[in-house]
Design a protein around this nucleic acid. Structure first.
Length: 224
DNA sequence: GACCAGGCACATC
DNA sequence: GATGTGCATGGT
């Protein structure tokens, strides 16, 4: 089986196992952006607490985050961990949005995909994953999001080497799949679901929904 | 009490 | 360019 075919096959298995995820869990595109920063190296349950605090203080919008003092912001997002750094990163993001798009997400969405991605990556605290999460889930741009789960799962399957880089793995997905926002959205969300539900608890992937495919893949490689 | 979670920037070699 | 380190909370 060709690699591209396997990539799609894995998607089908995950979809069959978990059903549609309908991501990102947020009410507005701006909330997606904030969540993307807050979830850096942090479990989502902790992010939810921080988001709750921001909402409770009616601070989860561009204008409010632009005005709120750094100290106060850090205090509200404390449950998400790394709160000093993340407060700084959120401030950078907000100032980027204000200066480049006058805070208009719709205007941002009309920008060229590649140019916008380059710009976003220059913002302090926005690395590849955060950038692509924003591109895909807040702006509906067809960019595949890679995260720790994706690397772990696909290297375990023998699809890529363990030390594969972000962009190498991203290329595999984007060259294997049709450039479709809905598909990218679901696929990444399904990978996270698999990572949360199975991979952490069962290191050997015994109950993994894509296990059969992993096995077949390994046999094919062994047989040349 | 150790370990981990939907990263990133920065220093050093 | 590769590798190491600091950043911090809350759940298991």
């Amino acid at each position: 089986m060709k690699k591209a075919r396997k990539v799609f096959k894995i998607y089908e298995r995950l979809y069959a196992a978990f059903g549609p995820r309908r991501w990102w869990p947020a009410d507005t595109p701006f909330e997606v952006m904030v969540g993307a920063v807050l979830t850096q190296n942090t479990s989502w349950t902790n992010v939810e607490k921080a988001i709750f605090n921001l909402k409770e203080q009616r601070s989860l919008d561009l204008e409010s985050l632009n005005r709120i003092p750094y100290r106060k912001l850090a205090d509200l997002i404390r449950p998400s961990g790394y709160y000093n750094i993340k407060a700084k990163r959120l401030k950078s993001l907000v100032s980027f949005l204000m200066h480049n798009f006058k805070g208009d997400i719709a205007l941002m969405r009309r920008q060229d995909r590649k140019a916008l991605r380059k710009k976003l990556l220059l913002v302090h605290g926005i690395g590849p994953e955060t950038c692509d999460s924003i591109m895909l889930y807040a702006l509906n741009k067809p960019v595949f999001v890679i995260d720790a789960y994706t690397k772990r799962i696909f290297s375990r399957c023998g699809m890529v080497k363990e030390n594969v880089t972000y962009h190498e793995l991203q290329r595999l997905f984007m060259e294997s799949l049709p450039r479709n926002v809905r598909l990218y959205n679901e696929y990444h969300a399904l990978i996270v679901q698999l990572g949360k539900e199975v991979c952490r608890k069962i290191p050997k992937c015994n109950l993994c929904p894509i296990n059969k495919l992993c096995y077949n893949t390994k046999m094919e490689e062994r047989n040349g």
